[in-house]
Each structure stands twice: as structure tokens, then as C-alpha cells.
Amino acid sequence: MSDIAWTGPLAHRDPAASDALDIEIADRSDISVLDLRIGSKDTKARAAASKVLGFDLPTDPRSSASASDVAAYWFSIDQWLIIAPREGLVALEQALAEALGSHRHALTDVSDMRAILRVQGESCRAVLSKCIPIDMYADEIAPGYVRRVTLGEIAAAMICVADDPDVFDLLVFRSYADYAMTWLEEAADAGRSLSLFRPDTPPAV
């Protein structure tokens, strides 16, 4: 009945030729995202939300937890992003709202607020070193790690999805998706591959 179609944040854009880039970049923005806030000391409210989710809300900074296709990402001591497939949004939101009803909380549908770009490939960390100032080779950046960062000149969040080969999800505010994509495509350009912390030919002496 609804003839109001959903448009992705990068629909206007021609994707770069895949062989021109060292890594794959895919738009995974068509997904549900809920912004959940619960007081940092409110164990009861957290337990109520955890019951609905089927796993404990992660309280270690920069960690995540998941079960089946629902994941929760730590964004602050009192804030999580819950990410799930598009279809499940209404039911999940309702279930959480009911469970949290009497507790102090804020639960907001922010499914369209961000663009999610998934990058994968062996060169991910080297490519992202041209985008993000943190230590991309730190041991703590392992699957499940989530961190708010600066990408180029904008705010972003980075989720380590898998390693070997590396897979990262980059979350940026929707209006910046085009800028983020341009920055990433330039960083990933195969003509300017950067060998970082790999065995290399030695310079002459």
C-alpha cells in the first residue's frame, strides 16, 4: 500500500570499478538501528533489555555482543546501538519498550540516521590508516571491537566484524555518506597501495 520507497544514502552514486580498489566497499545501510540509553549504574534496566535481546548488553567499553542476527554495540557508558535486520525493527522496538517501560531509558529508532559501509579485504588496515588516526594495528582491534573515530574530517564509528581477511563496518551520519565514500575510494585506490607492517624489499645501503 505504501508507495513511498526507501532510498539508500548512496543511491545517487556510481560505484567505483571493483578492480580499481584494493578492498571491497559495500553499502549496508538498509538495516534497523535503535539508539538505547540506560543509566550507567542501572543494572536492573540493563537486565530487562538483555532478556529481550537474548544476550547481556556489553558493558566493557568498545565491546559488542550478539545472538542470531541482533547485535548490541557499546557507544558510551550509558548508550548502545542495537543493530538488526530491517524486517525485525517494529517487533524488537516494541519488545524493548515494553520491557524497559518502568525503567529510566530512552529508545529511539535511528535506522536512517547513519550510512553503514562495509569494507573487506587484506589491505583494510592499511587503507584505513589513510582515513582514521587511531592505531589500526593495535591488538585490541579484533572481531567485536567498536570505537567512535574520526574518518577524514568527520565523526564515524568503526566495528571490527571479522579478521583474516579483515572486515570492518564504518558508520557515518547519512549526510556525510558521499564524502566518506569518496575518501574511502581514494584511500583504497589500487594505484596507491601502501605496504604497512609487511615484509618488504630492503633499501640499498
Binding site: A11, E153, I154, S175, Y176, A177, Y179, T182, W183, E186
Partner: peptide
């Protein structure tokens, strides 16, 4: 560095931007 041309500054797009264009 990379901050020239399209990347000189982050240009933001509204959801309606492509219609404007």
C-alpha cells in the same frame, strides 16, 4: 594530502539532494 577538490571539506547531502540536482 587528500583534502582537495571533492574532499576539500566534508560536503553534506540532504535526503532530497539528488532531486535538487
Amino acid at each position: 594530502g587528500q583534502k582537495r577538490g571533492a574532499l576539500f571539506q566534508p560536503i553534506r547531502r540532504t535526503p532530497i539532494q539528488s532531486w535538487h540536482e
